[in-house]
Amino acid sequence: MSALYELEQVTVRYGARTVLAIDALTIAPGEFLAVVGPSGAGKSTLLRLLCFLERPTSGILRYDGQAWHEPPPLDVRRQVTLVFQRPLLLDATVEQNLAYGLRLRGEPAGERVAAALDQLGLTHLARARARTLSGGELQRVALGRALVLRPRVLLLDEPTANLDPRNVAVIEQAVTALHREHGTTVVLVTHHLHQARRLAARTAVLLDGQLVEVGPTATLLSGQSADWRTRAFVSGEMVY
């Protein structure tokens, strides 16, 4: 099976600072990849790159067999969606926020939105205005807004940060369901190594903008990695 994403010698620089330098990374269609690494490692930057929100300063980003130096046309761009680290909703109701992406595409929203509301436990808040929501509710709406699109690629930037275990479970279930039922490719940035273990078959470790290792989650995160940097990171994270 050919790769969905291929990154070759990709760098992202802000001014003189290189925040991302990835020699090679491939992501297969339909896979569930976790990305872990300390704060400032470049995880969010990588997701913005994969979502075509940012261009590599150098190197090649291939999506679906084609190298994209400029952002791709709308129909390609719309195959990929990203749920940001900080949930930013429109000043509208929960329902309207969930329908936003579908409305942009001129697609009917009613059923899918109702299903997402139900799945994420938000039905009673359908008419509530976004600015009145709690942190956990905001995060669920932000995720739901992406789920209803049934994207080919779903990029998630710490979707369960600061959430209680029940909300974490709701979100994990929703993402897993989409992944299983629609073969969605998922790239999940997370600080919870246990979450990576629960969800992702493969994990990439980013340190200081460098891709240290990519491999089966079980091996990498059980402390048996061949790379001492991964072992050091994993043992450090496990303290928490």
């Binding site: 913005r48 929100l53 969606t81 990203l82 940001f84 930013l88 992406g101 595409r105």
Partner: peptide, 18 residues
């Protein structure tokens, strides 16, 4: 309006006009 919102909307498939 935070510039991040523009990126978020773009990520949801919005055109410049939208």
């Amino acid at each position: 309006i935070t510039p991040e919102l523009r990126l978020q909307l773009r990520a949801l498939g919005a055109t410049e006009r939208q």
